[in-house]
Amino acid sequence: MSLPIHPDAQEGRPSHSKADFISGQDVRWCPGCGDYSILGAMQQTLAKFDLPTEKYVFISGIGCSSRFPYYMKTYGMHSIHGRAPAIASGLRTVRDDLSIWVITGDGDGLSIGGNHILHVLRRNLDVNIVLVNNQIYGLTKGQYSPTSPVGQMTRSSPAGSIDYPVNPLCVAIASEATFIARTFDQDPRHMGEIFARAMKHKGTSFIEVLQNCIVFNDKAHQSVVGRENRDERMIYLKHGQPLLWGKEGKKKAVRLKGLHPEAVDYDPAREKEYLVHDETDPLPHTAYFLTQLLPPEFPVPFGVFRCIERPTYDELLNRQIDEAKNKEGEGNLKDLIYGNDTWTVK
């Protein structure tokens, strides 16, 4: 019996160490690149599960973050630009015994590969997607990406980008993804928690990791994730808990006024009025609503936005195959070749 690829919990003594997941190939990201901590958090997290290294496959597209598979001592494919979800889909369809991870970026996953992201999510194919978002094309040396803010001056937008950016989590919600989360490169502990949650989730897990490109877009996320800003600009979502942020004694909460959120000073007596996070809500409205919370009035939410259960594509396909075999019997080649209408020439 093979080990479950969606272990419920990390029980007892882990049978692996982080080193077991290090391929030994020289890591060639720029010094100070946020990808180092993402890689480390991944290796650290997977080591906590019993699943052995040969049961993991990392598939990436093209871009800085897409070098990721080379550094994991697992199976991997560094494929072509934007297509990792398609390759992962084929692999998952024929192999239900592997833990499959897609590593992509804002350009790879939302620009050239945008179509595949939409479809892998709507099919609820059982793979984990890590989208590393640094709001810039790094590998091609600094052009604006589909997540770059309007006005950003880059090598290909010297007068400022006039593209309205896309919010990766909105794409995921519109595609009815069953697991949606956001984390960031400077919090390895939180990244680890989110990766472990994705591992546990059956269906497509979509994780946006805000990452810092130190060379071409340094401090792009600083106004949110900088240590000095975190209290006011970040909120860690907790299932079943009200959305609270701010310094102790000066906490704030979200209250809904019709369809509009308002930030109010926290008052324990009025707790019932506050928005409580429910990641299991089968409707996508609340998750979408959370993606629209933006500074300066609101903090940016981090954590699990949505986690619901729905049969996966691979599960449904295997079920149809079992049903066909039960109904028609195991395929017989002679029956197929001969068909219903043969004749004999003597």
């Binding site: 093209i62 199976y75 991997g76 494919m77 494929s79 072509i80």
Partner: peptide
């Protein structure tokens, strides 16, 4: 993939 000891990465 899944074969013990043959972990490897291929690509373009």
């Amino acid at each position: 993939p899944g074969t013990l000891g043959l972990e490897h990465r291929i690509g373009g």
